[in-house]
């Protein structure tokens, strides 16, 4: 029982970590607080559902469609909607307010489209739904696959950002957007790219989530919320922090769902959030700002 719970917690946590990495890139590098992030995740979950049901494309290969689609969609959204706001704010602080408001509107647009297309019911499909024996406990194969995917995608991204020149440039923008041009980095391009990359991670996360969870057109808010909490917990822009915080959150949530009540998971998440706000507002893994 406990082993199953812990493995399920790691699966969920891995997914949260994956999803939060995308958000921490968008917020840390592109400086966009994207409240429609969860809707991108759910849209990808619907995409996987449709591809699986209507076209017979399994979730794993559908990642190859979802990731570029998420990248392209986010790239376009940044160019059409957010870039003008960035330009208008001139790098000032108005951007944070503006991006919160604009993406809050976007949230309702994407959610509305999904409601029109799929209605408000809970959706799920069956994929690799058989038990696998792990350390004497039976765990659904789709969950194990989700964990593997989270590790591969998240780890790959981590290496990309920390080990390549290109990743270093992106991280440089996160640290000092004003100075980036001095060393030949186009901060605008980097921001757009980062936002699109974050979107691609969101859609990957959405496909992964759809493999083992039910979801509805209005689940996005909760995913945004959890991703935001993971990002704050891990420290904004901190990938390794997001990874640890995501795993922690997934474990806590699964333990609460198993041993307390599934209806109280969000309450548990908020408790953690409150604790962090009161104790270390800069994040468990973030550098103290003062």
């Amino acid at each position: 029982m406990l082993v199953t719970t812990i493995i399920n917690g790691l699966v969920l946590g891995g997914t949260y970590a994956l999803v939060a990495m995308g958000l921490t890139i968008q917020y840390g590098i592109a400086r966009i607080m994207n409240l429609a992030y969860g809707e991108t995740i759910i849209a990808a979950a619907f995409l996987a559902f449709v591809l699986n049901g209507a076209l017979g494309i399994a979730p794993l290969p559908s990642l190859l469609i979802a990731a570029p689609a998420g990248f392209a969609l986010s790239y376009v959204i940044y160019g059409l909607m957010l870039r003008p706001l960035v330009r208008r704010s001139g790098g000032g602080a108005g951007l944070e307010v503006n991006s919160i408001l604009a993406t809050f509107g976007l949230l309702f647009v994407i959610q509305g489209i999904m409601l029109v297309l799929f209605g408000g019911d809970y959706i799920s499909y069956s994929y690799m739904n058989f038990g696998v024996d792990v350390l004497g406990a039976s765990v659904a194969a789709n969950r194990l696959l989700a964990l593997v995917l989270a590790v591969v995608l998240g780890g790959g991204l981590y290496l990309l950002l920390t080990r390549t020149l290109w990743g270093t440039a992106l991280r440089a923008v996160a640290v000092a957007p004003q100075s980036a041009p001095l060393v030949g980095i186009d901060a605008n391009r980097a921001a757009r790219f980062a936002f699109a990359l974050g979107g691609a991670l969101a859609t990957c996360g959405g496909v992964v989530i759809s493999m083992y969870q039910t979801f509805t057109a209005s689940s996005g808010v909760i995913f945004t919320m959890k991703a935001l909490i993971v990002v704050i917990l891990g420290g904004v822009g901190n990938l390794a922090g997001a990874l640890s915080a995501g795993l922690l959150l997934g474990l806590v949530e699964t333990l609460v769902a198993t041993y307390v009540s599934p209806g109280l998971t969000l309450a548990a998440v908020y408790h953690i959030f409150l604790g962090v706000l009161l104790w270390r507002p800069s994040g468990l893994f973030g550098k103290a700002r003062r």
Partner: peptide, 20 residues
């Protein structure tokens, strides 16, 4: 009734842009 929240969202984005 079905496209309500889409229209709301678009309207809101328009407001953010038009009357900053």
């Amino acid at each position: 009734p079905n496209h309500y929240s889409i229209l709301l969202g678009l309207l809101f984005i328009a407001i953010v842009f038009a009357v900053p």
